[in-house]
Simulated assay, not measured.
Amino acid sequence: MAASASSTAILAASLFISLAGVAVTGVDARFRAMQWTPAHATFYGDETAAETMGGACGYGNLYASGYGTDTAALSTTLFRDGYGCGTCYQMRCVGTASCYRGSPVITVTATNLCPPNWALDSNNGGWCNPPRTHFDLSKPAFMKMADWHAGIVPVMYRRVPCVRKGGLRFALQGNPSWLLVYVMNVAGAGDVVNMWVKGGGAGQGWMRMSHNWGASYQAFAQLGGQALSFKLTSYTTGQTVLAAGVAPPSWCFGLTYQARVNFS
């Protein structure tokens, strides 16, 4: 699984708590749990979950970013070129003796991509080949619902709201002419489809950021020395959130700044 090149720097960063921010949306866009659907799940790594750190979403050390080991790598169909990063799922093992008694329900967050393996058949090793819906869990998460010796188990899953403590987090990377922002700790539907940045300089307007990869967005602009505000739209619900004054004029690359607002 490919890890973001800047994830280590991001998670070595300090956390700045913003004192400003207002959430705005024109409709009741609260995300609600979806219906249960069949799929399959495997796992990667060992009990330490060391191999799950980093990942294609760019969250880096998942302990430091608040996601822990209850995580999953998504097949291409669910990953959606990175727009599936941060989404949350409940699942339970069903229909096999490897499932634990009572079919316990686990909750995981999408932090990585399970890439296709075109050398193997989709039903015999190429579990993440499109159009299959598949979850490659951390081993600790898998072991909460099934005997790990099974390797692969049938599951029922559903998208659920992401429950997060605190506001959205913005990890800043880049250089004086390029701002790269990793969006983390996203509540509600957990996903982002559009993002804008606004500097605090005179005459500054909202600048639309382009999707880089995973959970990162970029702007090619010189924004140093200006307070930064961000506006984000959820991929699933269309809800828009305004996080005003998240980073102060003295913001620095390599730091993570937290707003007081989040999706619902």
Rank of each mutant, 00 (worst) to 15 (best):
residue 175 N to D: 15
residue 181 V to M: 12
residue 148 W to Q: 09
residue 84 G to N: 06
residue 96 T to V: 11
residue 151 G to T: 01
residue 49 A to G: 03
residue 87 T to A: 13
residue 104 P to K: 00
residue 65 S to E: 14
residue 64 A to E: 12
residue 59 Y to S: 07
residue 113 L to P: 00
residue 74 L to W: 12
residue 76 T to Y: 11
residue 48 T to H: 01
residue 49 A to F: 11
residue 175 N to V: 06
residue 146 A to D: 03
residue 71 T to F: 00
residue 48 T to S: 15
residue 150 A to T: 00
residue 89 Y to M: 08
residue 74 L to G: 13
residue 176 P to T: 00
residue 62 L to R: 12
residue 109 T to R: 15
residue 131 P to E: 01
residue 126 G to A: 09
residue 159 R to F: 13
residue 76 T to C: 02
residue 99 C to A: 04
residue 64 A to M: 06
residue 110 A to F: 05
residue 61 N to W: 08
residue 158 R to S: 04
residue 84 G to E: 09
residue 131 P to D: 04
residue 72 A to H: 01
residue 167 G to M: 09
residue 107 T to V: 10
residue 136 D to V: 01
residue 105 V to P: 05
residue 166 G to E: 05
residue 100 Y to R: 11
residue 82 G to T: 02
residue 98 S to W: 00
residue 129 N to H: 00
residue 122 S to W: 08
residue 176 P to Y: 01
residue 118 W to I: 08
residue 82 G to W: 12
residue 95 G to P: 06
residue 106 I to C: 04
residue 131 P to T: 12
residue 92 R to G: 00
residue 87 T to K: 14
residue 159 R to G: 08
residue 91 M to Y: 13
residue 58 G to H: 03
residue 171 A to Y: 13
residue 79 F to R: 09
residue 114 C to Y: 01
residue 112 N to P: 09
residue 87 T to S: 15
residue 117 N to G: 01
residue 58 G to C: 10
residue 120 L to V: 01
residue 65 S to G: 09
residue 61 N to E: 06
residue 97 A to M: 05
residue 93 C to D: 03
residue 175 N to Y: 15
residue 123 N to F: 07
residue 127 W to P: 00
residue 49 A to T: 02
residue 178 W to Q: 15
residue 94 V to M: 01
residue 180 L to N: 15
residue 134 H to L: 13
residue 52 T to L: 14
residue 167 G to I: 08
residue 85 C to L: 06
residue 127 W to M: 04
residue 102 G to C: 10
residue 182 Y to D: 15
residue 81 D to C: 03
residue 60 G to N: 10
residue 91 M to A: 13
residue 62 L to N: 05
residue 93 C to H: 05
residue 91 M to R: 03
residue 53 M to A: 12
residue 120 L to S: 07
